[in-house]
Amino acid sequence: MTIPPVPYDIAPSPAAGLSPEEQQFNDLIAADSRIEPRDWMPEAYRKTLIRQISQHAHSEIIGMQPEGNWITRAPSLKRKAILLAKVQDEAGHGLYLYSAAQTLGITRDEMTDALIAGKARYSSIFNYPSPTWADMGSIGWLVDGAAICNQVPLCRASYGPYGRAMVRICKEESFHQRQGFEILLELMNGTDDQRAMAQESVNRWYWPALQMFGPPDDDSPNSAQSMKWNIKRFSNDELRQRFVGMLVPQAEVLGVTLPDPDLRWNEEKGVYDMGEIDWTEFHEVLQGRGPANARRLQRRRDAHENGRWVREAAAAYARKQAHASTGTALTETAVA
């Protein structure tokens, strides 16, 4: 029996007020409950989620590259194993998120195609290169640290599958940040050259990591709606502020200097005052003009293209096995 899909695009008739479906959606959001895949939802809610979850998934997948770059050159077998585990986690996080996005009616292939065609966005942070081993420390400490700060509130996102994916991701992510911190700490306890390498790396990653929270609140047009829908729980600036508050004491333990001369405690407000973020750079990188955009996308495209024969061969083999087990004849059209 075929049951028709949920008609999620029923517009409420203005005369009759809200449709019962929309009323139910609003009630669920007001009660801070969860929306599940087959529930009616406003088209804009669905689109916002598809955009956000798929961008998030793409970020995890592209995010494998800056660290994958160091797997063969990690300084010890232990570090190599840790880095492999971390990169494997990131692949996993991408897959959890793609699955969550698929429940909204987009296919995995559509998302992959959009990414490799350069039509989809991912976090601008992954368009920076990772030339030194200390970058593995900075990525873990600053980049994963910022990601965790962003992601913990997303565990309570109103869309059920997204929240559940985020719970799993957050559990796994905490090792990422700690191992990064440990890499930097080891370097800071090392030779002068190692300390300089750690500091130079922190200098490069600090500002891009702060940009990961997105543009300032007064320049973030979608934020207010996302907060009304309980997708987003805190504003970009709030999360950024919270992150800096956590970084300062951690930087003291490490003995690194955060590269912001205007960073100082504001007794009155109870938060750290920060210097101006270079939003021109943020927008440039987002528009594809960052130091590694082209390289990252080309790498992903190549991996997808080079893997095509494997995907197709596996699918053909599966069809052949299915036919063999049911005893049906395998025709040319069946394998085509």
Partner: peptide, 30 residues
């Protein structure tokens, strides 16, 4: 939710038994 006939590889739902004495629980798909 999430299955599509248009994809090269089909979607599978995954259930994991976390330890003996506990039933399999849905964890996600692939």
């Amino acid at each position: 939710p999430g299955a599509s006939e248009k994809e090269v590889w089909p979607l599978w739902e995954v259930f994991v038994r976390s330890s003996r004495g506990i039933s399999h629980t849905h964890v996600g798909s692939l």
